[in-house]
Design a protein around this nucleic acid. Structure first.
Lengths: 240, 240
DNA sequence: GTAATAGTGTCTATCAGACACTATGGT
DNA sequence: ACCATAGTGTCTGATAGACACTATTAC
């Protein structure tokens, strides 16, 4: 690059640049997050500890930050997520023992089909249930804080957007959707108000098929837009 | 650092890391943003063009990203802003000709006291009125996009938060506050609904003094919390 | 029929929108 | 008195919350 030798700022020491992912899915009636184990080598920071999946930006491989996040998401889950959003950046001298580093945290939501494997998980990657503002396990780096921020963002947005719809399988009933809202919010919602609200928006469309069970069949719906969330004018319940 | 020679990822080429600021204030009945001129040297990218104030993270000087943003804010305005929020990060190979770079965009709001100088501005820094999703001038780098994102964030949040309160002087009347809301939103609000809403929250408190003018004096108020915004349960007007 | 779950009817409380009205200063 | 702006009263419409009610399946 013609500028590299000329400009003084370019001689600044450059921070390490990483991307971390908070990948959420719902399973067993719980909101869960995908974590990976750090390598066991003593030459790595936080060996053997659980952490958000992520890693260094590869300036040769990655077109941009979001592509980098999508690449890492695909590496870990084998799937595209229907929803991916940047939560924010954390950069300081202390968060990584290898030096001043900046991480870019992305929140991803997986539908049930791509979500947690039904049975066991690999030893170095598994789903952890969210309890309060994090997981029970102690996390590497400042990932407890990063995860907390991702959970907060998700919970806040769920109050006035259709984000939980991205945690569903491709076809679902309104009762199932309400149930996922309740799991993420951690509180019950009123059935009539919920249904009125969802159907008043452009969020879902009827699938000409019913979900059969051991009682009255329920209408199946699917998303009208596979990735675009809907914003409601009011929160689900007042905040103050 | 003991890790530096050992770990393969650290041999990755590191992106350039910068912080850019979208500093807003209200003057002359308009929302304005502070821009600076790039140096005229041909050895710098985008010489002489207008840009968001910002620059490289200095890992020796800056404790963390937000401190870096605050440092640059103080350098440009001489003041602390009552409100500073991260908007997001933009990173790719093309945005800076000097190489793969990541910038971290912060939105700052200045109160009227710290806002635009009444008269002229320095030749290398001045306030530009916002028109639509940007300014009339062509900007350096991808700053048109960054500024657009900051404006969008501001406008969206103004619908359901008290952010415009940070654009006021320390004491203000409700009519003045409503006026600033209207400037940022670009539409008129209903007086009664506005006042009821503001007074229903914990946002302001009465100052035992009136603003005198050429008609009926108006009650003065000040913020209860100098930096913490209030969230409303509903948007100012429905979105769909 | 009974159990179970889907889905609706309807009343109430809240609050934004509209807009006319009153209040209080300067001149 | 009149103008200008501050501030209120009050009606209406939309919608969330509550909750009882009806609907439709399996057994």
């Amino acid at each position: 690059m013609q500028y590299s030798q000329i400009n003084q700022p370019l001689t600044f020491e450059r921070p390490l640049t990483t991307v971390d992912l908070a990948i959420f899915a719902v399973a067993d009636e719980l909101l869960q997050v995908l974590l990976v184990r750090r390598p066991d080598s003593e030459e790595e920071p936080f060996p053997g500890q659980w952490a958000l999946p992520g890693g260094f930006v590869d300036v040769l491989l990655d077109e941009d930050l979001e592509q980098c996040a999508m690449r890492k998401l695909k590496e870990k889950t084998g799937a595209d997520a229907p929803y991916l959003e940047q939560v924010g950046s954390w950069g300081n001298a202390a968060r990584d023992p290898r030096g001043w580093s900046v991480t870019h945290v992305y929140l991803a939501l997986l539908g049930r089909a791509d979500g947690p494997a039904p049975g066991g998980n690999a030893a170095d990657a598994r789903w952890w249930p969210i309890e309060g503002m994090g997981v029970r396990e102690r996390l590497a780096f400042d990932h407890r804080e990063l995860l907390g921020a991702a959970i907060l963002r998700l919970r806040n947005k769920v109050e006035y957007t259709s984000l939980p719809a991205f945690l569903m399988s491709s076809e679902f009933t309104l009762t199932e959707l309400q149930h996922v809202y309740e799991i993420v919010l951690g509180r019950a919602l009123e059935k009539k108000a919920f249904r009125t609200r969802i159907l008043a928006t452009d969020l879902v469309e009827v699938v000409p098929r019913m979900k059969e069970g051991r009682s009255r069949p329920a209408q199946l719906y699917r998303l009208k837009h596979r990735r675009k969330p809907v914003f409601f004018a009011r929160a689900f319940s007042p905040r103050d």
